[in-house]
Design a protein around this nucleic acid. Structure first.
Lengths: 172, 172
DNA sequence: CGGAATTTGATATGTTGGATAACAATTATC
DNA sequence: GATAATTGTTATCCAACATATCAAATTCCG
């Protein structure tokens, strides 16, 4: 990568000690986000990262990622389903779901049981430990994670936010 | 991965032609999301994926990703900044920003110019082509992408959504 | 029935985004 | 002027995500 041209740095070109630019902006100042702050996708991504970060913190004692938590939740609510069904409703591709299940199964949180009706498929079952971990996780999520968001936004706003996100996820 | 135990599949264990389960749920029915639909992070992630997908579609003629678009926007609004400054305000790590800039520079959308004041740093500059592409991208984003979200949510809701996402990104 | 097509879980593999360590060149600090 | 810090870069590593392919089992259909 050859760099040929050079340019004077407007910031330091000024001989002021406070290093003020020609356009009046100050040296160490935060950059202008400009239209970026009006881009829904930008704030969406940033907010999502923060929320996942907080989720991981809150549920850290149980060592569960958001994706793993969603799998446990789904297994609990939908007994008798196979890998394809669980993976697809979570938007996980079947090949990638294999390693994920291996992880959960190796921690004895769930079990694959070969179906007697269709011996190709594995019925996914929560173990007792899986149910216990899920229960503890639910409590942590409710009392720490979601509570934090509730405090930040207020219950009404939080509900409105959730509704709009669901609309986008469903209808866009 | 040895699978030992087996289980009867509740769905097909029923001898009904409509394959109804013991719990009354029907065979091919969609799974119950349960508490998942109340998890903010879940809808957040799903909505974010949809929005990025739509962004890519709308701006496809220009071959710009959301991240690339955000870089061009930032370069336009903040002339005279170096790689570290641009990368860090976008949450991009400096090492990962190198390849990204290589891509933009190889397409002649921006240029690295060695600063005369601090010869370690590269001042990032939009090229004329970069400015032109950015202008076209802005138009596509406004008239196709954001317009779609506006139609889906309504202007007031869209604004409220944006405000809440910004709050989360800023204060969580 | 029986062969063809499909489905399921799995493997291999590739791509992309994101993270850390280390380095040379340059600048700042004391 | 020696030491420390900064900048861009390279080399890796890891996780998330995607595609092609496979064997086993099932379904479809003539």
């Amino acid at each position: 990568m050859p760099v040929s041209r050079t340019a004077a740095d407007p910031a330091r070109a000024s001989r002021s000690t406070r290093k003020e630019r020609a356009d009046g902006t100050t040296e160490g100042a935060a950059l202008q986000l400009g239209e970026l702050s009006e881009l829904l996708g930008y704030s969406l991504k940033r907010a999502q990262l923060k929320v996942f970060e907080d989720f991981l913190r809150c549920v850290a004692p149980l060592q569960l990622t958001p994706a793993q938590f969603s799998v446990l939740l789904l297994l609990d609510r939908n007994p008798g389903r196979n890998q394809t069904e669980i993976a697809s409703t979570l938007g996980i591709l079947r090949p990638n779901f294999v390693a994920m299940l291996d992880g959960l199964e190796s921690r004895d949180l769930c079990t694959r049981m070969r179906s007697t009706n269709d011996r190709r498929s594995h019925i996914l079952v929560l173990t007792d430990k899986g149910r216990a971990v899920l229960a503890r996780a639910k409590k942590l999520v409710a009392t720490k994670h979601e509570a934090r968001l509730n405090a930040l936004l207020g219950p009404a706003n939080r509900a409105a936010l959730l509704a709009m996100l669901a609309t986008i996820a469903r209808e866009l």
